[in-house]
């Protein structure tokens, strides 16, 4: 056994798994059913799943073309744009939330106009949660898809062009199917990140049960007064995401084989 690899690998595994074990050990199993049946918990869970999925949809619609632009075209400032796309990765999410408020808030650059033109304001709405989650999660998708696009053989796209396909048709019928595994991987990362999003969400969309209070927000506030409730909520979030990710993974692996 190459123990120089195995020892750090086992340590790494323990590092990731032990906190989880801590949650499981300290979970108040006896009161679990009662806590889970609380409408607030289900409400927050539902909201989390809905907003994370919608945020992923938004990221797919905007992020895949953005990744294509970064991978397949050359224009001045492309490198800078590429660096900017990753900003949400390094920006503390709370700062991201404030930044969103400054642009899309009621007195923000664009939000001001939205408010006066349509009487519509994003903060404190479920749409606001989706915006905050998409902002933080999009880089995961863009980076994954851009990587897949760069790894894909452009000669297939040329072959499609010689058959009479316009650039959009090439993208839709050749490029996208070829990078589908990368897009799916990116979407999963994106969804998982959106599901766990806390900082940007609470800053931009606030916290109101049923409207903007997602699971991570509920967990955080429960931690203030009832750490046990927080553990339960965390376990629910964890269990749901693991089930969904494993189910999806099996389907893809099955489809690819």
């Amino acid at each position: 056994m190459p123990w120089l690899l195995v020892v750090p690998a086992v340590l790494g595994m323990a590092f990731l798994v032990l906190p989880l074990a801590g949650l499981l050990v300290r979970a108040p199993w006896s009161t679990l059913p009662w806590r889970l049946s609380e409408p607030q918990v289900l409400e927050a869970l539902r909201l989390s799943l809905v907003t994370a999925s919608m945020a992923t949809a938004v990221c797919l619609v905007l992020g895949v073309p953005l990744a294509w632009l970064l991978a397949r075209t050359d224009f001045p400032g492309r490198r800078l744009l590429r660096a900017l796309v990753t900003v949400p990765l390094v920006l503390p999410p709370v700062v991201g939330g404030v930044a969103l408020l400054l642009v899309l808030g009621r007195r923000g650059l664009i939000g001001q106009w939205l408010e006066s033109a349509f009487g519509f304001s994003l903060p404190f709405t479920t749409a606001g949660v989706v915006v905050a989650e998409a902002f933080v999660a999009m880089p995961f998708l863009v980076i994954a898809v851009e990587g897949a696009l760069r790894a894909a053989d452009v000669r297939y796209e040329e072959a499609a062009a010689t058959l009479g396909a316009s650039r959009f048709t090439v993208f839709r019928r050749v490029t996208l199917p070829l990078v589908a595994p990368g897009v799916l991987a990116g979407a999963v990362l994106c969804w998982a990140r959106a599901l766990g999003e806390f900082g940007a969400t609470i800053t931009f969309a606030g916290n109101f049960p049923g409207r903007t209070q997602t699971m991570p927000l509920a967990v955080y506030l429960a931690l203030e007064t009832e750490p046990e409730a927080a553990i339960v909520l965390s376990l629910v979030l964890l269990a749901v995401s693991v089930v969904i990710l494993v189910a999806l993974r099996d389907r893809w692996v099955g489809a690819a084989a």
């Binding site: 053989d153 000669r155 297939y156 040329e158 062009a161 010689t162 058959l163 009479g164 396909a165 316009s166």
Partner: peptide, 17 residues
Amino acid sequence: PAERRPVGVVFQDYLLF
């Protein structure tokens, strides 16, 4: 552009989708 030329190409390695 390539997509408007009345040209058919058989590529090396064929590049079937």
